[in-house]
Simulated assay, not measured.
Amino acid sequence: MKGGLIVDDGFIYEEEKLLTVLKTSLFFANDGFTVYDCKGELVFRVESYGPDTRDQGEIVLMDAHGRCLLTVRRKRPSLHQRWEGYIGEGTDGNRPIFSVRRSSIIGRCSVTVEVYGKPGAEYQIEGSFANRSCTIFNAEKESMAEIRRKVDASTNVLLGKDVFSLCLKPGFDGAFAMGLVLILDQITGDDAVDGHPTTED
């Protein structure tokens, strides 16, 4: 259970891995995410992620070469905000491998992740994604990944919220972690659309 769910074993690292996540929605028509490692190499990307995608409630995570790794889809109807993750592209005929359900606490990211087919395999995401400050814990309350604001190394200046760090602990699948980031971003965006606060000032 230490490492947990595996979407793609090519994104499991033996040592702690720090990724930089860039949300491109403010700069390009095809908004989305690009994710880089510490050497500046592209690791993941998500394209055409905007109002049309929100209506569809479905987002695809790709690797640097455009290969579809994971599809996350909003489950409707749902009393609570609930999302499911599927291996590869699309959800038709596929069985979900995990689900994500938020609590009713507005403005805070209190989220439960259930892994299908693995009794007791569960994660909790605690903190505030809106503030880019939250941690993914496994069932043993061990930190598996952290989302943090990024500081410019040369100037020591805190960067905007559209650039943040995703720190992966050894053995934790980066593709799974990035799928959770996409869902957290959607949940936080829905708060803003619904008129709820997304920060904790």
Rank of each mutant, 00 (worst) to 15 (best):
G4V: 03
V7A: 03
V7C: 07
V7N: 05
D9R: 04
D9W: 00
G10E: 01
Y13D: 01
E15C: 05
E16D: 05
E16L: 02
E16T: 14
L18R: 13
K23R: 10
T24A: 07
F28M: 13
A29D: 13
G32F: 02
E41Y: 03
L42I: 06
V43K: 09
V46A: 01
S48W: 11
S48Y: 11
Y49A: 02
G50E: 12
T53Q: 12
G57I: 03
H65T: 15
G66Y: 02
R67H: 13
R74M: 12
R74Y: 05
P77C: 07
P77Y: 06
Q81L: 10
W83D: 04
E84A: 12
G88A: 12
T91E: 06
T91A: 10
D92N: 08
D92K: 14
G93Y: 06
N94M: 10
R95N: 14
F98S: 00
S99F: 07
S99E: 11
S99I: 03
S99W: 05
R101D: 09
R102E: 13
G107I: 07
R108G: 01
R108P: 03
C109Y: 09
T112Y: 05
V115S: 06
G120T: 05
G120Y: 06
A121Q: 09
E122H: 07
Y123M: 05
E126G: 12
F129C: 08
A130I: 01
N131G: 05
N131I: 00
R132D: 00
S133K: 15
C134H: 10
F137N: 13
A139C: 11
K141Q: 14
K141M: 11
A145D: 00
V151G: 03
S154W: 08
S165N: 14
L166C: 05
C167L: 15
C167H: 09
F172P: 08
F176L: 13
G179E: 04
L180K: 00
Q186C: 14
I187P: 09
G189Y: 00
D190Y: 02
D191N: 06
A192C: 00
G195R: 07
G195S: 06
G195Y: 11
G195Q: 05
P197Y: 09
E200G: 04
